[in-house]
Design a protein around this nucleic acid. Structure first.
Length: 536
RNA sequence: GCCCUCGUAGCUCAGUGGAUAGAGCACCGGCCUCCGGAGCCGGGUGCGCAGGUUCGAGUCCUGCCGGGGGCGCCA
């Protein structure tokens, strides 16, 4: 049984015996930031003090004595600290047990959770219009969405990655017109696309003087480029879902009809409106313009109806940039009007990324292409730039600093730890040292502070995966990986695995510690979608 | 004007009501006879401002100041 579960049981039992029964969920066990606060800590005495009209420290002392009265597995000392925390100090045995768990679980099984319970989850991200190459911002949300998909998958969701291809409507026509204008050696239309790639596409296009035709031609080439660029940073979509296919299949009309039947639609000024205010939107929205053309929202609702009611996803996460947050309320309202519970649709709004000296607008022609960033930093570092921080916070990328410091990117620090481990394996092979079975290994020899630090880091991975999944925050995995790598580098420096003064049994124990670390690093790097190299 | 979001160290960011607010970068010192120095060890007067809630606030509430975004029969 997990140590924190054992402790929670013990706390609940002692509290009940002291006449202060409480919900097990109220008992929160944490790993304190500071080692001097013990290996595990609970604030339950602080939480219960008021309810029972007691002073927190008194209650904590009473609980601590009750806990110390009978031995608990691995617990060496229980103490009251600060305003009323109860801290547990454990012997190294629990950490050795953790090492066995890591090794037993392996790359596949350790920190693989089932909190998603097999729920079918679709994550839609990037979905940039195929009207120009990927820019840094697309890569930003792409890395986030892909890492989130990996994390959710490990936490027990059945995940599908989707890219919504906006291959119809006004943008397509504008792209086509821009191509045609360039071919005629004329200026592109006011709101058209200016980049050099438009000229290149115009060179290649030898079809008829038809904007839709030219737009379709261009977008399919652009889409190939988008796909190739994303694959460079290890992003692969399961589905590229075409907006045109939704329109052509008649689903937009069907969706509007459905809404009409449910009485959520009215007509005004020749247009068809969705009564979205009834579902919390700040105003009603047009579905069909007075000229008979459906709006983007109508298509988007048909698309989401397809996700939930046709394809049957239990949950959908849309990753949008902050510049699209204005459409969230009407989308959620519409989905609700279609009879889908709104909490099944989750929209993650990522704050925009700004680059020092360059604004990233696709039409300006001054955006920074994602492929440029990948060329400069390499795929792993380019990908990890995103995964260093929450997307809830607007970030500024200093492109000069990034390229100047690319070797300082934390990804190398983590990968270097992995490469060092591989190197230990190579040296062991050269020296004819084999790792015996873990059950025949005396893990009790692992007592050096560096060794215990490493194990303490490994304990946290299941919790980190859970938090990263629940909070939709894959960057937490990055932070953990850095911490684990840090602990490993310290261990590597102070604790030789093989050497003249290292007794064979200690070598064995350390080889297993190294293997457990390798597993942890491989899991984390896999979740982040960056490589776990054997050499660098 | 209204709505959303964010202000934490020189810079980029962690910190989802708890203990002495932490990392990386940059800067200044140390450390290679042995598994890879892309490493290790040491060096810190910082939560935008003002109220409030709470035993306890960087975290929750209100107002103000500042940055970003959104408010179309555009997508």
């Amino acid at each position: 049984m997990r140590t924190d579960t054992v402790l929670t049981d013990a706390i609940a039992e002692r509290l009940a015996r002291l006449g202060m029964e409480c919900d097990r969920a109220e008992i929160r066990l944490e790993r304190p930031q500071r080692l001097e606060h013990g290996d595990w800590s609970t604030n339950i005495a602080l939480a219960l003090a008021k309810r029972h009209g007691r002073r927190p420290r008194d209650l904590a002392s009473q609980l601590a004595s009750a806990l110390e009265a009978e031995p608990i597995e691995y617990v060496e000392q229980v103490e009251v600290a600060g305003p009323g925390f109860v801290n547990f100090r454990l012997n190294a045995g629990w950490l050795h047990q953790v090492l066995r768990e890591v090794v037993a679980g392996g790359e596949e099984g350790y920190a693989a959770l089932d909190i998603g319970q097999g729920e079918r989850l679709q994550i839609e991200f990037v979905s940039a219009n195929p009207t120009g190459p990927m820019h840094v911002g697309n890569g930003w949300f792409g890395s986030y969405g892909d890492a989130l998909a990996r994390v959710m998958g490990r936490a027990g969701w059945k995940v599908q990655r989707e890219y919504y291809v906006n291959d119809t409507g006004r943008q397509m026509r504008l792209l086509g017109e821009s191509i045609l204008a360039r071919r005629r050696r004329e200026a592109v239309p006011d709101e058209g696309y200016q980049g050099d790639y438009v000229a290149e596409l115009a060179e290649q296009y030898d079809g008829p003087e038809d904007a839709t035709e030219a737009g379709r031609f261009a977008s399919s080439i652009i889409l190939d480029d988008i796909r190739a660029t994303l694959e460079r940073i290890n992003i692969h979509f399961d589905e590229w879902y075409s907006q045109a296919s939704i329109e052509e299949s008649g689903q937009v009309d069907e969706t509007i009809e459905l809404l009409r039947e449910e009485g959520h639609v009215f007509e005004d000024g020749g247009a068809v409106w969705l009564r979205s205010t009834e579902f919390g939107d700040s105003r009603d929205r047009v579905l069909v313009r007075s000229n008979g053309e459906p709006t983007y929202l109508a298509g988007d609702l048909a698309y989401h109806r397809d996700k939930f009611l046709v394809r049957g996803f239990d949950r959908v996460i849309d990753v949008f940039g902050a510049d699209h947050h204005g459409q969230v309320a009407s989308l959620k309202a519409g989905v609700q009007a279609l009879g889908v519970s709104p909490d099944r649709l989750e929209v993650r709004i990522g704050q925009l990324v700004s680059l020092v000296g360059a604004r990233m607008s696709k039409r300006s022609g001054h955006y920074v292409p994602l492929s440029f960033l990948i060329d400069e930093l390499g795929p792993d570092a380019a990908r990890l730039v995103t995964l260093l921080s929450s997307i809830d916070q607007a970030t500024t990328l200093d492109l000069d600093a990034l390229t100047r410091e690319s070797m300082e990117n934390p990804v190398y620090y983590v990968q270097y730890a992995h490469a060092r481990i591989a190197s230990i394996g190579r040296v062991a092979t050269e020296r004819g040292i084999e790792r015996g079975p873990v059950d025949a290994t005396d893990l009790g020899l692992l007592v050096h502070p560096r060794e215990l630090d490493l194990l303490r880091a490994l304990v946290d991975l299941p919790r980190v995966v859970r938090e990263a999944a629940v909070e939709r925050a894959p960057f937490k995995v990055t932070n953990w990986a850095r911490a684990l790598a840090g602990a490993f580098h310290g261990f590597y420096h102070d604790c030789y695995v093989m050497g003249e003064d290292i007794e064979p049994p200690l070598t064995q124990a350390r080889l297993w510690l190294v293997e457990a670390t390798r597993i942890g690093l491989a899991i984390a790097l896999g979740l982040l979608g960056v490589g776990a190299p054997e050499e660098m």
